[in-house]
Design a protein around this nucleic acid. Structure first.
Length: 584
RNA sequence: GUCUUUGUAGCUCAGCAGGAUAGAGCGUUCGCCUCCUAAGCGAAAGGCCGCCGGUUCGAAUCCGGCCAAGGACGCCA
């Protein structure tokens, strides 16, 4: 809960506010007419450490020029006993405040004493958030969009935790409904092909499953498939392994029985695969929520009844409709088809109702691909119909990713395997650190083209190494000092005078504010950008200021500064789940 | 066509609850290791912030309209 910037800004704001009100009172202006004022950190540090727009903003209310008001406020400010040593009016009417050197020393001491807690805030107040992300279909491998969603979701969860929320990471497993039926049909078709006596010779000519699957996949003449099933080679591989276990005993079995056996075999394997692959990507979920439980425990039927009771449903052409257009959606949606089967929408409503009402989360956040944005109004409408405040449901829309090479040409296949790029093949090509960093480099809601060559490249061009390098350099300094028997002195009172030191401390001190901003915007990319900025300030400091060989006071001050930077990088990378090597 | 997101440097993108001279990385050009890691630092070049209008003391930022690109508009999920 250490945040020197916020503490200083809050107390400054109160002082400025008081001065402004005194000025207003003398002019006979009602205090309630005064606008809200801001304390901000100027982009250009020659404009001070903090600045306020108080004079500009209240020009109209006070019927006076901003510069005159600024001078008036300055005259009334008593900054004795604060860290401010200089105040000036500038530009069109800004008031700029300059901190004394003491503030910077105190800031570093507070970072070090906060340690691993530095960067955490209590803004969230322990509110419970359920964050659902990836939720890839268990019918096939995860794609590149899931890779982005996974990185963003997992890091957002960490950011929210750092900001004081109580976060549950959840994966919604679509293990029921139409796509599972389709999965079963796909497996069945491949199983039948594999066990067709006419194909026995062809199949026997392969001694390697991978090649066999590829051959079957490619040979659409011999192994034709309809359009509306899953065509991936992974389906063939499942059918092949199932055949090895069970032989052809399902070849002439009842269709229902055959499909059920295939699904019961392959689906759990796929779900385990999702968990394993995401684990490799350092994503560990608190909960895997299965859609099938909503069917088996009656939630789906109950939600249909609740929606009927809400008065927002009607029957038309044999189907049950949800009048979502009365609650802000473009059009009404079908809940139960004329054939009596609910659409995917019903279990989804039941699932969100489960999160917000039955399990009592304060907020539910879904990370969704841009292709699902039309889904937002209807789900919010459903929550409203069920008496749940739709504001408690938030959606983060994630735009599509495309991969490009260093020349800007699109990449469709993995260089290594030649296959379409799935999450797994991506992780085979890119270090996990780089993947997690890159996917959080851009805001979710921006379409971005990821330069795969750059992500793979282990060089200065790659921003993740730039930050890691700063950390490794610090560790190297500390090792070097240790070798000479020099250690950090816990009682040292740090003093900083060089501009590079001051800039670095300025950057260090905005971490808590950055975490809060990232949490408020649901935007973990603010953390990667911060990490790069911090590393940049450190490298500049490193280039300009030496540590070894300096006088005792300077050495200890700079050693503390290095430690504060190390702690900060470690804390940020812990949120991103990226490693901090000691040497590179 | 309707809805939605996005147009900022050659490329990839920050900045957007209005604020001071529009930023970074990559790429290009040129400098810096007798000294804690050169995976670094510095400098230069590069911009009608898509276009037009409006609100304001002040607009890349807010509003409206155009233009362009991605996405969504199933009794698919």
């Amino acid at each position: 809960m250490t945040d020197p910037v916020k503490e200083t800004a809050d107390s400054l704001k109160a002082l400025v506010r008081a001065a402004l009100e005194a000025a207003a009172a003398e002019k006979g202006v009602d205090i309630s007419a005064l606008p809200e004022i801001n304390i901000e950190i100027p982009a250009d540090s020659s404009h001070g450490d903090f600045a306020t727009n108080a004079a500009l903003a209240s020009a109209r209310a006070l019927h006076s020029s901003p510069r005159d008001i600024a001078a008036d406020i300055c005259a009334r400010l008593d900054l004795s006993g604060t860290y401010f040593e200089k105040v000036e009016t500038a530009g069109p009417g800004f008031i700029n405040f300059f901190l004394s050197k003491d503030w910077f020393g105190a800031a570093i001491s507070s970072v070090i004493s906060a340690g691993a807690r530095y960067g955490t805030t209590s803004t969230g107040g322990g509110k419970k958030i359920l964050l659902e992300f990836v939720s890839a279909n268990p019918t096939g491998p995860m794609h590149i969009g899931n890779a982005r969603g996974g990185a963003i979701g997992d890091c957002l969860a960490s950011v929210l935790e750092a900001a004081g929320y109580n976060v549950c990471r959840e994966f919604y497993v679509n293990d029921a409904g139409n796509q599972v039926n389709k999965f079963g049909r796909s497996l069945e078709l491949r199983y039948m092909q594999l066990n067709d006596p006419e194909n026995a010779g062809f199949i026997a000519s392969f001694d390697n499953d991978e090649e066999l699957c590829q051959a079957i996949f490619s040979d659409t003449e011999r192994f034709p498939m309809p359009d509306d099933v899953y065509l991936g080679a992974d389906i063939i591989a499942h059918a092949k392994r199932f055949t090895e276990i069970n032989g052809d005993k399902y070849y002439s079995a009842d269709e229902e029985e055959r499909r059920a056996a295939l699904v019961n075999y392959a689906l759990p394997l796929n779900i385990e695969g999702l968990e394993r692959d995401l684990g490799r990507y350092r994503i560990i979920y608190d909960n895997w929520f299965r859609e099938s439980t909503l069917h088996s425990d009656g939630s789906v039927e109950r939600i249909i009844q609740k929606l009927k009771d809400s008065g927002y449903t009607y029957e038309q052409e044999g189907a049950l409709w949800f009048a979502s257009s009365r609650l802000g959606d473009d059009k009404d949606r079908v809940l139960v088809r004329a054939n009596g089967v609910p659409t995917y929408f019903v279990p989804d409503i039941a699932y969100h109702y489960n999160k917000l009402s039955e399990r009592g989360f304060d907020t539910a956040i879904d990370i969704l691909g841009a292709d699902h944005h039309g889904y937002i109004p209807r789900m919010k409408a459903a929550m409203q119909a069920l008496g749940v405040d739709p504001e408690r449901l938030d959606m983060v829309i994630m735009q599509m990713v495309s991969l490009i090479d260093g020349e800007g040409n699109p990449i469709k296949q993995s260089k290594r395997s030649g296959k379409a790029i799935s999450l797994v093949t991506l992780l085979d090509e890119i270090p996990i650190d780089a993947a997690r960093f890159f996917f959080n480099l851009r805001e979710a809601n921006s379409q971005f083209e990821m330069d795969l060559d750059l992500a793979i490249e282990q060089s200065s061009k790659n921003p993740v190494y730039y930050v890691q390098y700063a950390h490794a350099r610090i560790c190297s300094i500390i090792r070097g000092l240790k070798g000479k028997g020099i250690f950090a002195d816990g009682n040292a009172k740090p003093v900083y005078t060089e501009p590079e030191e001051i800039e670095l401390i300025r950057e260090l001190s905005i971490l808590p504010g950055t975490v809060d901003a990232a949490a408020a915007a649901y935007d973990p990319s603010k953390l990667t950008k911060y990490a790069v900025e911090l590393a940049s300030c450190f490298h500049k400091f490193y280039d300009k200021c030496r540590i070894m060989g300096e006088s005792e006071d300077v050495l200890q001050s700079r050693l503390m500064l290095c430690n504060a930077v190390r702690i900060t990088i470690e804390n940020v990378f812990a949120m991103l789940k990226i490693t901090c090597p000691d040497k590179m």
